[in-house]
Every structure is written in C-alpha cells, then in structure tokens.
Design a protein around this nucleic acid. Sequence first.
DNA 1: GATTGAAGCTACACTGGTGTAGTATTCGTG
DNA 2: CACGAATACTACACCAGTGTAGCTTCAATC
Lengths: 206, 206
Amino acid sequence: MATRPRRRYAARLPPDERRTQLLDAALAIIDRDGYAGVSIDAIAREAGVTRPVVYSVFDGLGPLLYALLDRQERRALRELVAALPTDIAPEDADALLLETVRRLVAMVTADPATWRPILLAPAGTPAPVRERIERDREIVRGRMRALLEAGLAQRGGPPLDTEIAAHSLVAVAEHFGRILVEEPDRFDGERLVDAVRSLLVALGSS
Amino acid sequence: MATRPRRRYAARLPPDERRTQLLDAALAIIDRDGYAGVSIDAIAREAGVTRPVVYSVFDGLGPLLYALLDRQERRALRELVAALPTDIAPEDADALLLETVRRLVAMVTADPATWRPILLAPAGTPAPVRERIERDREIVRGRMRALLEAGLAQRGGPPLDTEIAAHSLVAVAEHFGRILVEEPDRFDGERLVDAVRSLLVALGSS
DNA sequence: GATTGAAGCTACACTGGTGTAGTATTCGTG
DNA sequence: CACGAATACTACACCAGTGTAGCTTCAATC
C-alpha cells in the first residue's frame, strides 16, 4: 500500500500576500463558475494550497467573501461614480446621457470579473454579502434619484415619482449589465446606446 | 440503549396524490425559505414522510423541481396572459396600460407563492429549471415586443428598438414584482400605478 | 380473518464540504 | 550550519445531504 508521497509544499507567503492570493482565487472561481462553485475547498485548490492555509487567514467562507466584496466594492463604486455624470449640463443633456450609457457599457465589458460577482450576487451568496450589495444598490439609486431631481428641476420637467424612476432605471441598467457579462455577444454595446438615442428622439427631448 | 421506537407510518397515498403533496411541500419550502432551503430531505420532512418515499415518485431533486415548475408555469403563464391586454385599444391606450399595471400588481400580491419561485429563480436553482424560466421570460418578451410594435404601428409612433424596449419593460416589471413578493410593504401597488400615470403625463401621451 | 401486494420505514454506504489538532518543512538569522 | 519561528501539510472527526437494499406495515380482497 504505497502511501501517497507527501504533497510538495507551496511557496511560503506572508499573510498579506496569501490573503490577496486567496481573494484572487475566489474571484477567479466566481468569474468562471459563479457563486455555486465557491467553497473553502475550491479556493484552496485554486490557490494550490490546503484548507488549513485558508483558515489561517480567514474565519470561514462567509468572512472571506465579505472581504472579497470589501475589496471589489471599492473598485466597482469608483468605476461607477467615474462613469456617472457629476452634474447636469442643461444645454446638452442628451449627449451627456448617451455618453454615460456608453461609459457604463465600456465599464462592464472591460472588467467583467469585477462586475459579475456584483450583478449575479443573489445566486447562492451568503446573506451578509447579499445585504451589503443591496445596500450599495440603494446608494446608487439614491444618486440616480438626485440626478433625476436635479435634471427635472433644471429643465422644468413634469412631476415624477423619482424613487420609482430610480428603481426602474437601475433595474434596467442591471438587466443589461447582466446580459453584457453573461452573453457578451447578445447585444452590441453600441446598440444599447442607439436604443437610448431613439428613445430620446421618441420623447421629443430637446 | 433504548432503540428508538419505530416511526409512525404516514398515511398511505396512491402515487398521484403523493406526487401532488410532495410538490406542494416543495413549494411551501421555497415560499418560506427560498431555493436555498430546498432538498429531498427537507421536502420529505415537510411532507411528514421519509426520503425513499420521495425517490419512489421522483428521480431526484432536479426532476422534482422541474415537475414543480411544470405545474406552476401553467398557472403563472395563464395568469399573466389574462393580465396582459390582448390587443391595442387605440382610443384609450393610457387607461388600458394603467389597468394592465394594476392587474399585474394584483396578480403577484394575490398569489406570491406562485410568483416567488419564478421571480427569485436565479438563486440556487438547478440549471434546467433556470433555463426553462429563461425561456418563458423570452416568450413574455416576445409578446411584449409584439404589443409594442402593434402599438407603435397603430399610433404612428417613432421607430424604436422594440427588442431592447421589451427587455427593459420586462426587467422593470420583474424588479417590482420581486419587491412586491419580498417586501410587500415597501411600495403600495397603487403607487406603482400612479408612477406610470405620471410617466404618461410626462410623455405628453395623448 | 388470512393473504398479499403496494406503500412506508430503517439502516447503511457514499459524497463533498467543514473545521482543527498535531506534525513536517522551510528559510531567515545568528 | 544549526535552530527556531513561520508557514504549510496530514489526518481525523464531524455534518448534511444523496441514493438504495431490504425489511415492515397496512389495507383491500377473497
């Protein structure tokens, strides 16, 4: 009974680098197989290491995913804020809107590994992670609502339930974000921009 | 060592009734705990029966959930088709739209147990079930698209990417459907109707 | 009221994942 | 070049779920 030869030791890393590496491994798994495939065991395997190594850095899968979100959230929100307009340019609102859509599409397609875990979060995520993402979503809606109100005020638009409108816009954005991430060939990004343009024309927006 | 007393036998049922009962049990679990809580074991427990009973009727969890979807899909699509307008009434399109929204809201709030498994499906559902629901979604989008095109043709609306528009409308509808099912107190149904009404006014829809 | 077949139950073997105690290896330092 | 701290590995006990073989009970029939 040839007892299996001892496993070759993985390169030794200080906790900080190990931590980074493990988070990268988790991200790679999520990007490849979705949240379904993620487990302490899978992460250890992906990193070429054994489970106790993972436990030496994180207290379990929940805290690990939370830490991952912690790291990715910053990047994602930064990208998002950069893509959204900062204020309303009344004279060229349409062009600004189109440019924003274009930026959002580019943002997601350029870095799907960042966006997939966020857009697909409901599927099998631990509750704390899901709650956190929902909180972020709420923040984005708040910002969207502020933009809407500012826009309506400046352009003298008619009254509108801006909370509902913000929900709707974010829902649509997420829907197409999900498609961009999961079936990148389904809709060309520019087609989405064109659709918004047509909509603006249809609305007779000046 | 007091060996546990033999479990009391559950009422004997012919396969058909047992099948129905098990599907009901699965539905109750999904309605209560979401897809996360569903397993052969949990379903057997919920039905007051042991696992082999479940296996005598279904080949496993996948087929069981598929059968459940089979049963619920019919009801759901029937309700949905009943709620959507059948044709375009050009002279009172706005009222028809408002009525449709009202009907959709009523449909979901009246029977959340039917709609929760569909609206929340991505979370932890076996692939075949998810694919099936996605197919249904595609059907609904197709219908929505036909309505849009008919409406635009009749009312001489401007050109629009109706595929994108249908995606958007369904995405918004699902978003609010999910909220209605998960946080019924967040938005009053009538508020959603009002929002659509305001939107129509804002569009200067005649 | 005995028989018997359908419908349930128990018990077991298996899988894949968790978490940890104890041991082996590496590598920087003196 | 020896040693000790840091880092990794092995091995185990545990859990929850799966799927099945074989035994038990029930109830319809004669």
